[in-house]
Amino acid sequence: MILSLNIVLLVFLVVAAVISLGVKDLLSGSMVLGIYGFLICLLWAEMGAVDVAFTEAAVGAGVSTVLFVATILNTKRRSTD
């Protein structure tokens, strides 16, 4: 476990989470959520949970982002709140 790398990843994680909640454009929001998923994946890989990191990279950062985009294309792109 490398403490400084952990701190950098966690700071980016919080930034990505806040941005993905804050943006009005849902497409940007889901992209930032993909970044969030990938940062979590890096954090898990760095802590030794490689299997979990692999799943997160495939599901959290990959497929779920695609599903969000597919849904946004069929609904509205702007968030109202």
Binding site: D51, F54, T55, V59, G62, V63
Partner: peptide, 17 residues
């Protein structure tokens, strides 16, 4: 090695996506 059914299945599904 790391991996297994879930990860490989998701990647196979992603290839069709």
């Amino acid at each position: 090695s790391p991996g297994g059914g879930f990860q490989g299945g998701v990647m196979l599904g992603a290839s069709f996506i």
